[in-house]
Design a protein around this nucleic acid. Structure first.
Length: 197
DNA sequence: TCTACGATTTACT
DNA sequence: GTAAATCGTAGAA
């Protein structure tokens, strides 16, 4: 079952803990790769000094952040890794959830191929750059609709039980001054597929 | 044009 | 533990 648009037309800080445990699906040719979202970080532009959309900075790159919730915002970081966000809020309000880790549920051989020479399953997708590499997600997916998309989309986990969510500081934004210590990183307690640090 | 650097990962000492 | 890899993007010149 797919998500309704409305689900993502809310604060990223509200959607963040709720989206954990649901699925991110990637179709590649005839294969359907299923993963479970285990870790996210909220970015709340324009107030958030850690966000690309701080002060409503609007450029060709960040444009999808200003689109309607449920779309993807993918950017290249450090010249070599892609990171994917789920855009939240209504059109014009730039909030998003950075997917930092997912748990692979099937098609492991395909994921290992994309992440070669990685040998340990726990190292396949426990990081924002890693999961994009494993799932073959690049900037061509920026602006993609994750609600109605065919090759990449979100799906509800109908059996999702109450999940214990841990809040912590976000990673890799030491320049964000008072915003670097906000507890806007959410992950599933005791899950093995988490980017540590 | 030109320059500096990043919401990271990996390989090395 | 430290540092290299690597390039699009943003802002300045």
């Amino acid at each position: 079952m797919r998500f309704d648009r409305e689900y993502f037309l809310r604060d990223a800080l509200e959607v963040g803990p709720e989206i954990l445990g649901h699925y991110l699906i990637r179709k590649i040719n005839d294969r359907t790769v299923k993963t479970m979202i285990t870790e996210v970080e909220a970015y709340v532009g324009p107030e958030d000094k850690g966000a690309h959309t701080y002060k409503n900075k609007r450029t060709a790159r960040t444009e999808p952040m200003f689109s309607e919730g449920g779309h993807a915002y993918v950017y290249l970081i450090y010249g070599m890794y892609n990171c994917i966000n789920i855009v939240c809020q209504r059109k014009g309000k730039p909030e998003a959830l950075l997917l930092r880790a997912v748990e692979p549920l099937n098609e492991f051989d395909l994921l290992f191929d994309n992440r070669s020479p990685v040998k340990n399953i726990h190292n396949l997708s426990n990081g924002p750059g890693k999961l994009c590499s494993a799932l073959g997600i690049d900037r061509t997916f920026s602006g993609y609709d994750l609600i109605s998309g065919k090759e990449l989309y979100l799906e509800k986990n109908e059996n999702r039980k109450d999940i214990e969510v841990v809040c912590s500081k976000r990673i890799g934004i030491d320049y964000a001054e008072e915003y670097k210590d906000k507890l806007w990183r959410f992950y599933i307690k005791n899950n093995k597929f988490i980017s540590k640090k």
